[in-house]
Design a protein around this nucleic acid. Structure first.
Lengths: 342, 342
DNA sequence: TTGAAAGCGCTAACAG
DNA sequence: CTGTTAGCGCTTTCAA
């Protein structure tokens, strides 16, 4: 049991051709039930294991899906990956996961590697930096399904899966307005990325609808790293008119801000009302509980996985790029409430 | 540029043999600098991409590392995976990640799939359930490096990477004792798993050292799912002598408990002192801040990655299984303090 | 330094 | 229903 067993070994012992072995093991219809059974059971007992290198080479497919994410250790992303993995696993696909670490160059490199590795499909959530998409051309030329999730862009024939960030941004902002805020700051991520520009546009729309003027200082673009909360604080302190509401593009930043503000004696929500984004677990823990927008990461992963696998199995017409919008949900907690009921 | 280019195509154009192409592309020493350069540059410009299926088949290796984790969406695990991915990526290894979802059966299936996929090494963090290890035999027979991290067991010649859970459990417990606790409850995970039994043993040792009697009701075994906090609460309420300290095997559970206790008017740390485990981000957010033990997930991932890659590159003698113990650190915050300074 | 040729193990078209 | 026969594209031994 030391050297590896091949279908030729099985063929010799069972007195059939390697082709028959292969067919039996792959449950090919044109093999008689009895030989199939004989072969499968002997293969099992002998400890035979398929060599996927050979099978892949011959079939030119790998049953593998590649994934590129900016960073796999965030609550949102790990939930999404968990959903993707679950679906892939159920359909016997392997998942190769790689991180771009928000670098365009790394994203390109990872894309190349995954291409070379012969992934049957690629799922991408874009890095902050990424500005051009040539590294995906090769996939599209070879008709390898390509899907974007969360941080997306709209390339021809590439499905996208995400929430309606603009509407969500609108909802969050309007909520603050309805709670009485007149001078709202939006702390955004890099506006190059759809998710952040959409949220920002929703923000502006809400202001506009309620006839609140938008000034440049109502927007603060960041990399959303909570370590750098001081920049945000500076912006808040240096405001000509002090803000009475802040809409953060993610919860981590909002939480960091709440903690700093509280330390400085600012009352939340009395002095400043705050809403975040993502429904990160910490939003339910912090005092006051953080209002936020729920972004269903796990469900998104599941849907993304199902979508790509449908493509691979040919159930969906690959030409017709579909975009799936998941439902977001405004979650109102204490941090943004007008009449704070303790 | 539609059909894929092979080394034969390159060979024809450049008037050399496929073997030479292969060698040049792999930077083989016995190829003259000039032809190497000529070949590499033409390969680049022609858009040639290696077919790894063929290369893998020929070399019988894949430059791929398999990983099985119980669940990829926990702060600890996603941090560890992030570290593993970083190292793997830097060394041009792909990472196939799969989840056992705490099921032994799924773990077995995943192990089989990863074996069939020809991973060059396997890294595992065991499922709660897993009781036997036959599914790893095939890796050991084939001399495929196998490494356990965090949730480990000690198989011959299998390196393990984790913290000293027993010592950590001891430290956490002794801390509570030094803060004046006399009747401490330990809320544990499944004691079958090393990490939990070790923490429990540390717990008992600390009690013993300080001459505190251990009774069965001082231990409560759970699956650490914070949704099921009610079972813990019942145990707390039904105690003959009420507990004055609780040591949780993870922070998520501790946080859920704190929230419930506070709602019921129990004061923390005055009435009950609490310490958790993992240094989950929420531990710094909850009021009172949760004392805990830092378990460096990212660093663990990095080390695990480096270790396995050293093995693969032959820098380490595979026979000599090494075990790496990372440093843990007791983090004392408000939830366990005797003289609570607000 | 390069080339010829034999695999690596499986699949699939074609034939029977 | 089963066998024969070519590949799949790259690596590597052996020879030149």
């Amino acid at each position: 049991m030391d050297k590896k067993i091949t279908i030729y070994d099985l063929a010799k012992v069972l007195n059939v051709s390697p082709a028959t072995i292969s067919r039996a093991l792959n449950d090919h219809p044109s093999i008689s039930f009895s030989t199939k059974k004989r072969i499968v059971s002997y293969a099992q007992s002998s400890g035979y294991r398929i060599n996927k290198f050979a099978a892949n080479l011959s079939k030119q497919k790998s049953n593998t899906i590649g994934v590129i994410v900016p960073k796999l250790n965030s609550p949102f992303m790990s939930a999404a990956l968990s959903g993707i993995e679950k679906i892939a696993n159920e359909h016997n696909y392997n998942l190769i996961i790689s991180q771009s670490l928000e670098s365009e160059q790394k994203e390109k490199l990872n894309a190349k590697t995954l291409y070379d590795s012969g992934v049957d499909a690629l799922m991408v959530s874009l890095a902050h930096e990424t500005a051009n998409y040539e590294h995906f051309d090769i996939f599209r030329e070879q008709k390898i399904p390509l899907l974007f999730f969360d941080r997306v862009d709209y390339l021809p024939n590439c499905p996208t899966i995400l929430i309606d960030n603009k509407q969500a941004g609108f909802d969050a902002t309007e909520h603050l307005i309805l709670q009485g805020c007149k001078n709202i700051l939006h702390v955004s991520g890099y506006l190059k990325r759809n998710v952040y520009s959409d949220r920002f546009n929703g923000f502006k729309d809400a202001l506009h609808k309620h006839k609140i003027e938008f000034n440049p200082y109502n927007l603060f673009e960041t990399d959303l790293d909570p370590q750098k909360i001081d920049f945000v604080m500076d912006h808040i302190k240096n405001a000509k008119e002090s803000f009475d509401g802040i809409f953060f593009a993610n919860d981590a930043m909002a939480v960091a801000c709440i903690q700093t503000l509280l330390k400085e004696g600012v009352r939340i929500p009395e002095d400043i009302k705050i809403i975040g984004f993502n429904n990160n677990p910490v939003s339910e823990i912090i005092q006051p509980n953080l209002s936020t927008v729920n972004y269903p990461g796990y469900e998104l992963g599941v849907l993304a996985g199902q979508s790509i696998i449908s493509h691979l199995k040919g159930n969906i017409n690959i030409q017709s790029a579909e975009s799936i919008l998941l439902k977001h949900k405004l979650i109102v907690r204490t941090s943004s409430l007008k009449n704070n009921v303790k």
